[in-house]
Design a protein around this nucleic acid. Structure first.
Lengths: 112, 112, 112, 112
DNA sequence: GTGGTCTAGACCACC
DNA sequence: GTGGTCTAGACCACA
């Protein structure tokens, strides 16, 4: 996996997991990789993987069973969907809108 | 002027100037504020203002006349427009697109 | 290390690193000193070292891994060689040529 | 006239005059432009032109007759030739030599 | 530990 | 007056 520059790696990882949940690759109750495994797989420091899990835990998307591992929480998909939608519509869409006006681009120019 | 958190101030300043050029508030050949003036006006260290000017100079948007000041370059508006459009379409639009699919949002949901 | 007067220190540092790459003292993939280490070693402010690294990064000669450090980029030697040669031949040689004519010096007078 | 970035304008102007003397365009005893005239011709602040004349005066290449103007000094051509040659051979040639080694360029590559 | 940004203040050459 | 460079020191996010 490659990471973009502008965004913290741990957030990019968290987003990646969230998207897997959204896409159904990870289902509620599934166990996810340990921080060590994930770190190794992504070529990333376990600390970094840990921060991703902390973030997702805070959001209620995953939870930890001590000594066992991390699991996808009940209702995780709903939470992710709701959070991402809210963030997208509240924070991103206005910026996009403004930029399109500034650049005199129409929706049709975007190929959406 | 107030600055958002996630983006370096000097880039926000540079963007602000670029947008002024785009909007016609600054025209080719116009002298822009000295680093000291700009710093004072924005409540920012002159060094920080300087970094903004460095960035814009690199982009070919402004140029320096030694001992005199910075001026809006010929063709600056074109450059800004081109750069911003390219960035938007190459980097942002794909992300937007992907996110919309993921979140099952249609263009009509965005209110653009 | 001592620095000459007429050229910014940060550029002299950058050139020094480029020459190390050229000479093979630094190879692709090598980690280079952190800005603090380099600053300490050269008796220079870390910010100044940082500016050197910014310059080299822009040239594609080194790259950064966040939180880890700077590394010599793939193809760095080629880039350095190409850039320095181009600069020398385009900018310096014509001046040399002109001066030699003006001063009525022959190549043999130079002891090259 | 256009000026390069790395060298003070006033020195570039002084060099230009020195070269005219070297090339015979200006002869000993010739009156040269007033600082105002020169400034106007080159699109440069008279102060800047003045600094050029100060430099040349210091070198003994021109001299001033108060209220009348500046004139090319006796022996100016010799002085210029001697100074430029000394500077070139002592300061520039060694640098050129070193760079050529570094870049693995031969004299024949230079097209001199 | 790493780099990145920012401030405050200084000095300098140049116009 | 202008920009350019540099120092000292701070704070922060990130790995």
């Amino acid at each position: 996996m490659e990471f973009s520059e502008n965004k913290p790696i741990y957030l990019q990882i968290a987003d990646g997991i969230a998207e897997k949940i959204l896409g159904g690759d990870l289902k509620e109750g599934d166990r996810i990789l340990s921080v060590r495994e994930l770190g190794a797989e992504l070529g990333v420091n376990p600390n970094t993987a840990m921060r991703s899990y902390e973030k997702l835990t805070m959001d209620g998307v995953i939870y930890n069973q001590r000594g066992i591992g991390y699991f996808v929480a009940d209702g995780a998909r709903e939470i992710v969907l709701r959070n991402m939608r809210a963030d997208f519509i509240q924070n991103e869409v206005p910026v996009i809108k403004r930029k399109m006006e500034l650049l005199q681009l129409k929706v049709s120019d975007l190929g959406l």
